[in-house]
Design a binder for these strands. Structure first.
Length: 479
RNA sequence: GGCCCUAUCGUCUAACGGUUAGGACACCAGGUUCUCAUCCUGGCAAUCCGGGUUCGAUUCCCGGUAGGGUCACCA
């Protein structure tokens, strides 16, 4: 372990949207920084002009903001180790490249892409891994910047420690002369990230498993550059729900912002993504963001990939929604109310929210559960005909019961849930009906919905006027 | 094919050699004066295979098998 101040970074390339895999890498780096009162840095790795996607950087920044993963230094806010976009750091890479050239550890690649492709095919035919250095030219021309600059590797066996994976080792056969600077003058990731991490004094390099195979090359380059290794931590992949592939765009990986739009809370996303491949060793499942910060440990991260299970995500979201104080929930749910709720009284909405809080799996469920609290529902007596209990009564009996309910409720001055329940209980005795019949009938007549919150509370929130009107409407509609 | 990583209920996981292999999601059944949900109770369900080491292996070692990653002028 390093005793340097903890500085972690998230270094995405702006080539697409943020999906859960990227979020997890960012989250773990962020958690580590916050836990150690260190810094979290955002760096854009925009060295591939061809793959860059317009608006992608903004999208990544927006996603991180939406999740509450804030950074201390970054392209938008600057910092002491900038610039934080690799495309603006070309001079820095050039200087480091020159050090390697001067030390005879880098050389100009004289081959055409076609020639290299031929070498690659040869390797494949011989069922071997492709190694460029098998074709390392004897007399390397001076590098004029128009061809790729390659690293002159000094292959050796490496053993190193990874905070997640433990002790790892490889032989010299995996180390190669990889490209440091492309012919367009931009550095490769392999070169740039090492330079940047060193210059930005990054203490912990946290990234996905896809980079594990390149580690020996990186170590060789660190050595050539005389840079002290940071702490390494390799995250296993998050896999798609179907199949065993690494989760990617093609496998249906969703944009995290889509989850937020679908009514998942940011804290749910962080809790869920953290729990994919990490737990604190106890049976605790629901973590607040602060709890994650204190409990997170790199060495408790799983070594194998985890599948993304939307059912579990949904359950977890319900848990977080239920833990929210009502006022907090009210704020977050504001964009999700049905259109018919526009202009409705805030107190009314708040009362209603208290009734449905336990019923929400996502905030986006709100309109379907609450529509009849805002708009007058259309009576549909076929719902009664389809009901096993209610079917036993004749339309006449149904009308009579509703009329009795109407007349009794009309006498109430105190239209609270408690008072309503007392009244309904009395009505039960007077009419000799079972709750299954009387309550179902009233519930239907005021909501015309397949389900609703408890009857007494539903009536109380709807209010006396609305309830009496709806009962009357229902009676008239029963032909 | 070379190299590397991984392997516990369908899924996410706990168990740092000794447990009736635990929890959660999902699913099924019951309870909470009507419905839906919440909540509670119960049920179903797992150590990939084969060898070692050991008094004893989910756990340590070796070999299979399976899955994943990588072998780009992508990151």
């Amino acid at each position: 372990m390093s005793d340097r101040p903890v500085r972690t970074r998230f270094a995405p390339s702006p080539t697409g949207f943020m999906h859960v895999g990227g979020v997890r890498t960012a989250l773990f780096a962020w958690l580590l920084a916050r836990q150690n009162h260190g810094q979290f840095i955002l760096r854009l790795e925009d060295t591939d002009q061809k793959r860059e996607v317009e608006g992608s950087a903004e999208h990544i920044i927006e996603s991180l903001h939406a999740l509450g993963l804030d950074w201390n230094e970054g392209p938008d806010i600057g910092g002491d180790h900038g610039p934080y976009k690799q495309s603006e750091r070309l001079e820095i890479y050039k200087a480091w490249a020159q050090k390697l050239i001067d030390a005879d550890r880098a050389y100009a690649d004289p081959y055409t892409p076609e020639e290299i492709e031929t070498f690659r095919q040869q390797a494949r035919t011989n069922k071997q891994a492709f190694l460029y250095r098998n074709h390392r030219p004897e007399n390397q021309p001076m590098w004029d910047g128009t061809t790729p600059l390659r690293f002159k590797a000094e292959p050796q066996a490496y053993t190193w420690h990874d905070e997640v994976m433990g002790d790892l080792s490889t032989g010299p056969e995996v180390i190669d002369d990889f490209i440091l600077v492309k012919s367009d003058g931009f550095p490769t990731y392999n070169f740039a990230h090492i330079v940047d991490d060193a210059e930005m004094q990054i203490s912990h390099v946290i990234r996905g498993q896809e980079f594990l195979a390149s580690m020996p090359n990186y170590l060789n380059l660190y050595d050539a550059l005389g840079i002290k290794y940071p702490v390494f931590a390799t995250m296993p992949h998050i896999m798609a729900e179907a199949g065993n592939k690494k989760l990617g765009k093609r496998d249906g990986a969703k944009d995290v912002l889509d989850y937020l739009k679908d009514g998942y809370l940011p804290e749910t996303m962080l809790n869920f993504i953290a729990s994919l491949g990490w737990n604190d060793g106890t049976e605790k499942e629901i973590f607040s963001v602060d709890e994650l910060i204190t409990a997170f440990r790199l060495d408790r991260v799983q070594h194998s990939g985890a599948r993304f299970d939307e059912k579990r995500l949904e359950w977890m979201n319900g848990q977080h929604i239920r833990q929210l104080p009502l006022n907090d929930l009210a704020e977050r749910v504001e964009p999700f109310w049905p259109e018919s709720a526009v202009g409705s009284d805030q107190d009314y909405k708040l009362q209603l929210l208290a009734l449905v809080q336990d019923r929400l799996k996502t905030l986006a469920d709100l309109p379907t559960i609450t529509s009849y609290f805002f708009a007058e529902p259309t009576p549909d007596w076929t719902m009664a005909d389809d009901n096993k209990q209610l079917r036993k009564l004749s339309p006449d009996e149904q009308r009579q019961l509703l009329q009795q309910a109407h007349d009794t409720l009309a006498t109430l001055d105190d239209f609270s849930a408690e008072s309503i329940q007392d009244t309904l209980n009395q009505l039960l005795e007077i009419t000799g009906q079972k709750p299954g019949i009387l309550f179902s009938l009233i519930r239907l007549a005021v909501s015309w919905a397949p389900f609703s919150p408890a009857l007494d509370q539903t009536l109380a929130v709807l209010g006396k006027d609305r309830v009496l009107t709806r009962l009357q409407t229902a009676i008239s509609a029963r032909g």
